[in-house]
Amino acid sequence: MGRPELPVDETVRERALLAKALRRIRRKARLSYDELAAKTGLSAATLKRAASGKTVPSEDTVKTIATACGQDPEILHWYWRDARIADRGRLAQLRKPALPQFINGRRELSAALEYFYEDAGAPPLRRLTELAGGAHLLPVSSAARIVSRQALPASRQQMIAFLTACGHPGHLMGLWGDAFEEITRGSDVGRMPSVIDGSYVPYEQGGRPVRVALQYMPPVVERRGDRRMVTPPEGWLISSTELERRGATRLLSTEGWPVGTIEVIGNSIS
């Protein structure tokens, strides 16, 4: 009978969760470390270290173990991502980017790209290139300069390839591509679409739906040197109570509207 496995190192919670998940799928597959080593081609020592909680194994190692244990590697990916983020500690030091419509200049765009890279778990650069679709879309050297804020992508296509590699939501790709083109070519035309005045924002107050009248205008974008200066959108709420104002303000802020630009101008609800 083999020696009992050491307890998972709990120093970093996310690393511990990954280690426990790896142990769980191995036990479910009823494989010893030696048997798992034979199936994966990895050494038993490497497998034990991956499930120790003391370090974050490579994503390839995690996927190999998952496949050998008959599990979907994608399930383990999120454990790996969270463990990698916690282990690096860099993401916590970065500010979450604004919506692409509000990115001002090269510096903010570069910072946004670093955030997306760290939020993806900061995969090795060669892996990032693979996820982007190949070196013809995102060379390793270009990826290195982008994640270190030394350069922006060379083209809109490379920008999209980088975001794809970072797992960024597809429905925002076009907006980020537009932001890249405006910033790099110096266009001073704003992209935020106008919204019809007098629309209504629905939300719940004490179990009953409340409609709050809303009027706002798109932001104004002007160019000063190499920076796009964005004047935030102006918004006005017509609400009958402070509670309703707070609720609508909260809802709008989740959509990217700066809370400071929302102002109550009436005391009735249509």
Rank of each mutant, 00 (worst) to 15 (best):
K63T: 05
D87Q: 08
A83E: 05
R84W: 09
S110A: 15
A111P: 10
E59F: 02
Q71L: 01
I103A: 04
D82K: 08
R95T: 10
P57H: 05
R107Y: 08
Q101N: 14
A98H: 12
E108A: 15
A83F: 03
T64M: 09
F102M: 08
I65R: 02
S58C: 10
D72V: 00
A112I: 12
A92D: 10
T61G: 07
R107L: 09
W78V: 14
V62P: 11
V62W: 04
L94F: 13
A92H: 12
S58N: 04
D72Q: 02
L76P: 00
G70N: 13
A83H: 00
V62M: 02
D82E: 15
L76N: 12
L76C: 02
R95H: 15
G89T: 02
L94H: 01
N104I: 12
V62R: 01
P73G: 09
A112C: 15
R107W: 14
R88P: 10
E108W: 01
G105F: 03
Q93V: 09
C69G: 06
H77E: 06
A86I: 04
A83Q: 05
W78I: 10
T64Q: 06
P57T: 05
P97F: 04
P57C: 01
P100R: 01
L91N: 12
D82W: 15
T64V: 13
P73E: 07
P57D: 06
P73D: 11
D60P: 00
I65T: 06
G89D: 11
A112P: 04
E59G: 10
S58M: 05
H77D: 11
Q101Y: 12
R107E: 15
G105S: 11
A112W: 10
T67Y: 02
K63N: 05
